[in-house]
Computed example of a mutant assay.
Amino acid sequence: MQKILRIATVIITCLAVGYMGSLVTQDNIPTWFAGLKKPFFNPPSWLFAPVWTLLYIMMGYAGGRIWNKIDTQEAIVKKAFLFFLIQLALNSLWSYLFFGLHNPMLASIEIVVLWLMIYETYIQFKKIDKVAAYLLIPYLAWVSFAAILTFSIWYLNR
């Protein structure tokens, strides 16, 4: 039962972080964001919420799997989970930089750091649980796309 509770706790935490980021995002989509020039590959706005929800669930499940290894691999789990928490904080920060501060340039810089922290989290998770690491690959791919999109929006609106 403890293993399920750990996984559920991390999933709920990831979803809560996503929700906090969405609070600053939602009000700015029909106003500020709607007025920006966007590249031809910009997806429709309705697509972001379901994609992020799925990614947060996968991320949380991966993090929960890692947490469940704490009894047998304490030192490496703590290190991996630290990277996990850092990338989660950076994930939320991006929304505040881009949508809250209306600063695509700063968000472009920050998303590179976010990508690096996700990649390092993947590397650390892979040492502990390959399934947990593989669950981060769609997240890494989506943030790669989001980085290109962020840079493009900054470039088109500078």
Score class of each variant (00 low, 15 high):
53 T>V: 06
121 T>G: 08
14 C>E: 05
86 I>G: 07
82 L>G: 10
115 W>D: 15
28 N>C: 08
71 D>H: 14
1 M>N: 08
81 F>D: 10
27 D>N: 07
126 K>C: 03
46 W>T: 07
24 V>P: 10
122 Y>N: 08
7 I>D: 00
16 A>S: 14
146 A>S: 13
138 P>M: 00
9 T>P: 09
80 A>W: 06
152 S>R: 05
93 L>V: 15
44 P>C: 11
81 F>V: 15
120 E>H: 11
97 L>K: 00
110 E>M: 12
112 V>R: 07
50 P>L: 02
148 I>P: 07
67 W>A: 04
110 E>L: 14
21 G>F: 07
2 Q>L: 14
85 L>Q: 15
54 L>I: 10
41 F>C: 13
107 A>E: 05
119 Y>A: 13
24 V>E: 13
105 M>C: 07
127 K>T: 11
47 L>K: 00
90 L>H: 04
31 T>Y: 08
75 A>V: 15
92 S>A: 10
111 I>E: 03
46 W>F: 12
74 E>W: 05
74 E>V: 01
8 A>K: 01
79 K>E: 15
19 Y>C: 09
39 P>S: 06
134 Y>C: 08
158 R>C: 03
6 R>M: 06
123 I>M: 11
67 W>T: 04
96 Y>E: 10
5 L>Q: 06
155 Y>L: 15
50 P>Y: 00
127 K>F: 06
98 F>P: 11
54 L>N: 04
83 F>T: 12
61 Y>S: 09
34 A>F: 07
42 N>C: 02
